[in-house]
Write a protein that binds this DNA or RNA. Structure first.
Length: 319
DNA sequence: AATGGAAGCAACCGCGGATCT
DNA sequence: CAGATCCGCGGTTGCTTCCAT
């Protein structure tokens, strides 16, 4: 205690606790544009009052587009149990073999269900033999959500079906709306974040760029892109790189925050509004961002939820 | 219908290892 | 080579929701 390295930041004047939709938007938009080569500098450059660690955590555990949400499938649970038996609490290593799952998520699931499940299994290994199946012999464990029908091949875009199909399980992993208060606020954003960003190869490329992707996870990451949604992503890395530099503290954030303020009457927008950037600048950036995110064109959800007068808010910035 | 406990999950903290200067 | 810095990991905490009474 007290030793080791100093905290990554002084944490003075920085936000803590739950992330706001605005912060999420900022983070996603920034990473979309610039990647996350330097977590420490990222929050400052992105205009976020967070420490780099917090940004990284938020991105990895929640905002990352390739995240797979919803309940763990039986196969995934089996994998976790099996890997935990051999690796122990090496959550990151376990996560590396479960594409779209985060170490934090796996850790939580282990601590909440799988630990019990595994211990139950250990306690009655003999009776398991009667079940015939070495794998899923834990049938008496109450795991209603894990119908064997939910094959591991379904790389569900989490909330792609947030409205519906994922709720077939109706269980605790309602990951889309992790915060109830965020439901109405974030929904338009959140839906698009997960639905539309997932296939975005810009980010996938960043994520898969590491050599350790020799792990089976990597191919599944890319395969998670449906062919239809993948198409518009291809070849956009260069496009991304060629985008002009933007003063993130002015342009983007003022636009985003302005739209949030208009939509929600939020007067607490911390961002600086740059009057020198005219409407042309806004439109240029919004269109550009939208194109880059593969969101060109209004979405039905956003249209349905946004006041026509404010439509630009989520149509344009619906990340 | 109200209340208390349990469970689930997101986020924080501190440390170790890797990388940079 | 040594010190400084950063990233990532694992453990833990606290808030929210769900469920039983």
């Amino acid at each position: 205690m007290g030793r080791g390295r100093a905290p990554c930041c002084a944490k003075v004047g920085l936000n803590r606790g739950s992330w706001t939709p605005q912060e999420d938007v900022r983070l996603v938009a920034y990473i979309q544009k610039h990647g996350h080569s330097n977590w420490r500098a990222l929050p400052r450059q992105a205009g976020l009052l967070r420490c780099g660690k917090s940004c990284r955590l938020r991105w990895i555990n929640y905002l990352r587009p390739d995240l797979r949400r919803g309940n763990f499938t039986a196969d995934e649970e089996e994998t976790v149990i099996r890997l935990h038996a051999s690796l122990g609490n090496k959550w990151s290593k376990i996560a590396a073999c479960l594409p779209g799952r985060t170490d934090n998520e796996i850790k939580n699931v282990w601590n909440t269900h799988l630990k019990k499940k595994a211990s139950q299994r250990e306690q009655k290994p003999a009776s398991d033999k009667n079940n015939g199946e070495a794998g899923n012999g834990d049938s008496d464990a109450p795991v209603p959500s894990l119908s064997s029908a939910s094959s591991s091949t379904t790389i569900t875009t989490s909330n792609g079906s947030s409205g519906g199909s994922d709720t077939e399980t109706g269980e605790q992993y309602d990951t889309v709306t992790n915060k109830p208060e965020m439901i109405d606020v974030l929904s338009p954003l959140d839906l698009d974040l997960d639905l539309e960003l997932e296939p975005d190869m810009d980010i996938l490329d960043m994520l898969v760029d590491a050599p350790e992707e020799a792990c089976p996870a990597a191919p599944m990451l890319t395969s998670s892109c449906s062919s239809s949604s993948l198409t518009p992503c291809i070849g956009r890395v260069e496009e991304l790189l060629e985008l002009p530099e933007i003063d993130m503290d002015t342009d983007i954030w003022s636009i985003i925050d302005d739209d949030f303020a208009r939509l929600h009457g939020d007067a607490t927008v911390p961002c600086t509004t740059n009057a020198s950037q005219g409407e042309e600048g806004k439109e240029w950036w919004l269109e550009d961002l939208e194109k880059e995110l593969g969101l060109w064109g209004p979405t039905e959800e956003s249209q349905a939820q946004v006041d026509p007068h404010d439509q630009i808010g989520y149509d344009k910035v619906s990340l």
